[in-house]
Design a protein around this nucleic acid. Structure first.
Lengths: 336, 336
DNA sequence: ATGAAAGCGCTAACAG
DNA sequence: CTGTTAGCGCTTTCAT
């Protein structure tokens, strides 16, 4: 019922080997023959059997994307970047998620789900220390990391230290001196970004000889609700900050809401700056350090494809994508 | 180098057939034998070769998800629902996108990319008339549709007419009489929701004996920017509406922004209601008719799995998920 | 309950 | 440039 390469070969009056070569665009096929084979295949609605091809060739023709979450602005935007690139290639995109500490999802190992089914892997925002990442790396497949960098592995990320520093410095230059930070990571979390961003925050403060008040450091867990709660905490303190650096836009959104529900206005009584360049940041008039999130995905995908294609293992490319400060209404000089 | 079923068979002192049966949990295997095989396989780090298994069995063990977009709140949330279900099964999730009229992405046919590589398909928000959907359906694979319903095919959707009617009726009950609608679809678009939602809007208006002013119908293209532009258009008219029903929350967000930049306030001079229950709607205090987006994905995935598993083709299930009005600050009685 | 053997549909040397 | 011939690693009758 299903038509095979043999049927095509027969109909075209050639061998299956020739059909295989012709259809895959391999050299050493007479153009006339190739044309004919193609025509016949098309007319018969022939579709190559991926499983057979994979079994025979050893290549799977698909790449795995591993992400802690598929919903969420950052993740879905990265994913869309990856997808646009893969769509153009002939590679299939296999989507896998690993348990998320934040959501407390059960965390069964991904490596087995990857093992003989992909030619390469892209991971999104998995920390270097993450056991899952480790097991994926130990598969020895071509790999592209997004959001973090590890020696010897290709990666695309931003300079988190610089981004945080830019946001903080911006607030400082506006004249703020009591600056709070809403950090992302839950205790013991494995993601790198929060640490680096904290360092950037500290560097900016120290360079300006500003005191860093431990009571002005609260956790926002990278969520809107978390940011709101964190900000509420900050606002109920005796000695309020005049500005807040949130490690992500979504936390900043929550913070803005908290500010408003206290009868204050972001950019007036309290300045707020985030990191991301979230779709909604413009709408909400949030000052932020934008990162090219979709590009992160695109770049990683391209890098992975070239790794897979080249025979010799090329030197891992560690790309650092640019970020830029976007000043909006949520940040302004401190009152009076 | 890679270890095969034969190695395991040998090590366990049984035939490859028995290993296959034991590992797959098939009946007619002595429990002792099964245990031993499992143990040996585990100790050898044996991983079944999917391609070989697929070739031999004819099942692909993967399901395809087709979406017009992967970024965007609705799509990524649906996708995450699908993913959670598939993660629990042994099915691989193959992500494919089809060209989006809105984004004008080139639209190469998906059917070939699906043909012998998936056991079933889930489509997100593809219109019944969409050529891509048609070609997918003609593949004859088990299929679950999300966001639309077609006779004879399993689907999960909401009652778009009722949802739109609920939002509109809410505005009417508040006392509004000049009510505008921000529609979604670009001219000639194929998606069903905008049509149904428009019908719901009309029904509500007619039941209240309210005139429907054609100048109060503008297109927002389902985007924030589109909604903002649409609202601006409405506000620059001589006879402004006192309330606006936006067919999606993102358009409503844009509309709220436009309202504000005209020095007005949503829920004061102008009431706004949307549809979606978008993550940000609470933050922005938007009245909306919420739909269980993640559940849509979950339900579709479960339905598809059961279709694939059952031998006889079961009657297609057309699930309609519930929606509910959430009243927030963006809607209130008209001024004086 | 288990084994033997025949493919599944293609690719990849190897000849020619 | 093209054909022959082995497999790739598993599943699945069919026997036993």
């Amino acid at each position: 019922m299903t038509i095979t390469i043999r049927d095509v070969a027969q109909a075209a009056g050639v061998s299956t080997a020739t059909v295989s070569r012709a259809l895959r665009g391999l050299p050493n096929v007479d153009e006339a023959t190739r044309d004919k084979v193609k025509r016949v295949a098309l007319s018969m609605d022939y579709v190559i059997s991926p499983s057979a091809s994979r079994l025979a060739s050893g290549r799977t023709g698909s790449i795995g994307v591993i992400t802690p979450r598929v919903a969420g602005w950052y993740f879905s935007t990265v994913l869309s970047g990856i997808e646009t690139v893969l769509q153009q290639s002939t590679m299939d995109l296999l989507l896998l998620s690993v348990g998320d500490e934040a959501t407390g999802t059960p965390d069964d190992p991904v490596a087995p789900r990857l093992n003989r089914r992909v030619d390469g892997v892209i991971t999104i925002a998995l920390a270097p220390e993450d056991a899952q990442l480790q097991s994926v790396l130990s598969l020895g497949l071509p790999t592209s990391l997004i959001g973090v960098a590890i020696d010897g592995v290709s990666s695309v990320s931003i300079d988190d230290v610089a981004a945080a520093k830019a946001a903080t410095t911006h607030l400082i230059k506006l004249g703020h001196r009591r600056i709070a930070v809403i950090t992302g990571a839950p205790p013991g979390a494995l993601f790198t970004a929060p640490h680096a961003r904290f360092r950037g925050f500290m560097e900016a403060m120290q360079q300006a000889d500003l005191a860093v008040d431990p009571t002005l450091q609260v956790r926002g867990y990278f969520t809107i609700a978390g940011g709101e709660k964190a900000m509420t905490e900050l606002l109920t303190q005796r000695d309020r900050p005049t500005a807040v650096f949130a490690m992500s836009d979504e936390m900043a959104f929550g913070a803005m809401r908290a500010v408003r529900s206290h009868g204050l206005q972001p950019g007036r009584e309290i300045s707020i700056a985030g990191i991301d360049g979230h779709d909604m940041s413009e709408l909400l008039d949030l000052t932020t350090v934008a990162q090219p999130v979709q590009d992160l995905g695109r770049i990683a995908a391209k890098s992975l494809l070239s790794q897979i294609r080249s025979t010799d293992r090329p030197a891992p490319a560690q790309v650092q994508a640019p970020t830029h400060l976007i000043v909006r209404g949520s940040s302004a000089p401190p009152p009076n």
